[in-house]
Amino acid sequence: MKVKFGRSLAIAITIGTGLLVLANFFVRNEFLRRVQQTLLDWALILAAVALLLGAVNVVATHLRKIRGRRPGWVYSLFLLAALGTVVLLGFLDPRGVASPAVSWVFLYVHVPLQATIFALTAFFIASAAYRAFRVRSVDSFIMLVAGIIVLLGQVPLGQAIWDRIAAAKDWILAYPSTGGARGIILGVALGTILTGLRVLLGIDRPHVK
């Protein structure tokens, strides 16, 4: 019985909270605004704590890997060492993340490495282009043509090849591409509305499972 009561209470709180926040979108009321603001402040605190929990989870996971000498445990060791170093640097300087040491690590280690990893995708894209755009049907032919137009229409070289290619690219992006993207966005919006209603009506209760 306690479990059922607890569930009912959780559902009631969820529905009440959701309706209060939702009402503030349609009614300009100072009380509702304050209630919503308070609830959102709580949510932001929880989100920040969740970030902290994520960091703790990373540490715990890699500690287990090191203890068990699992494959790649050396990388875990470096990860924890780097993590500890950055955290230590941040705590030692009262400016925290704005301290020169942390900024140096971020600018000259983090940013170049992440940008480099992302740049490698250019090679994968180039290799995939060799196989992915083969013309096997009319549809694939249309996609091939559209892809080439957009690729070349984005850069000055394309205009040098065909002066109307930029206009063709704009047309593809403005109509077929935008139409498809808008359809996806509308579908996501409808799904969001439906999910919200199901939660507000207590049909879906992912928070009490």
């Binding site: 894209i125 180039a126 282009a129 013309v135 091939l144 070349l152 850069v155």
Partner: peptide
């Protein structure tokens, strides 16, 4: 930068064309 981007896009188009030539 913009010239490099132009050539990069052209390289991908060339690879697409080569792939289709091999396939056909």
């Amino acid at each position: 930068a913009i010239e490099a981007q132009s050539l990069g896009h052209l390289a991908i188009v060339v690879l697409i064309v080569l792939g289709n030539l091999a396939y056909w």
